[in-house]
């Protein structure tokens, strides 16, 4: 199977081509320029690989959590490519992509969620893939959920930002901390290949971001007078 994977959930813009198990990937520090860079980068990669868009059979994107605007750029581009070519899409969790990247057997993945909060998930590696001990959630570093046992690897910008609090919470569990890693299309492609094989591909219009932070404004009735 041939897959395009893309991620714009951070200030990086990353792309990967999964070509029947071979991976080509690329990234650029984009700042706020993801929309300018992504599709031209994709064109260059396709041309260099000698692959036409018509040979692509699925689109994968980093569905979140991450920058809201970034998630929608990736999702919107994935929707547009897939709708135009009539091929399926899968959204891949950016926290699961972090777990895949550090490649330990037990992973605590945490990303900065701003406002003093974290996007957090805990995964254990199984034969079938990553089992979510805690599916992605939003929490304060002090209230991150417990995990059982030793040998856990902590990773992601959440650990960079709140290392002391998290090291204390997980003092019984942590084996190592890898703070500076960020989600990349390379691992999104690897995870997507499994998901497509499991029949998890969806129609373009069903591909949506997974924000985790769902309360973004107060209704008039909820505001204090």
């Amino acid at each position: 199977m041939n897959i395009i994977a893309l991620d714009t959930s951070t200030e990086y813009c990353s792309l990967a081509l999964w070509l029947n198990g071979n991976i080509i990937s690329r990234e650029k520090l984009a700042g706020q320029r993801h929309s300018e860079l992504l599709l031209p980068m994709l064109q260059t990669m396709l041309t260099e690989a000698g692959v036409a868009l018509s040979q692509i059979e699925g689109i994968a994107f980093g569905a979140g959590p991450g920058s809201f605007t970034g998630l929608r750029i990736a999702c919107g581009i994935a929707q547009g490519l897939a709708f135009a070519r009539d091929i399926p899409v899968v959204g891949v969790s950016t926290l699961e992509a972090l777990a895949q990247q550090v490649d330990a057997s037990r992973v605590l993945a945490a990303r900065d969620a701003r406002m003093g909060e974290l996007y957090f998930a805990a995964y254990e590696k199984m034969e079938t893939g990553w089992f979510p001990v805690h599916a992605p959630l939003l929490c304060r570093p002090e209230t991150a959920p417990e995990v059982i046992g030793e040998g856990w690897t902590g990773c992601g910008s959440g650990f960079a930002l709140h290392q002391s609090v998290l090291s204390k919470t997980y003092s019984e569990n942590l084996q190592q901390i890898i703070p500076d890693c960020y989600p990349h299309a390379r691992e999104i492609a690897q995870l997507a290949a499994i998901k497509f094989a499991n029949g998890e591909g969806r129609a373009a219009e069903e591909a949506l971001p997974v924000y985790i932070r769902n309360k973004v404004a107060l209704k008039e009735s909820e505001r204090q007078r």
Partner: peptide
């Protein structure tokens, strides 16, 4: 609104690119 514009822009540009 920037975020709203970007949504239509992303889908529209990807459609045009792919076709």
């Amino acid at each position: 609104l920037a975020g709203a514009l970007l949504t239509g822009a992303s889908i529209g540009n990807a459609l045009a690119f792919a076709r």
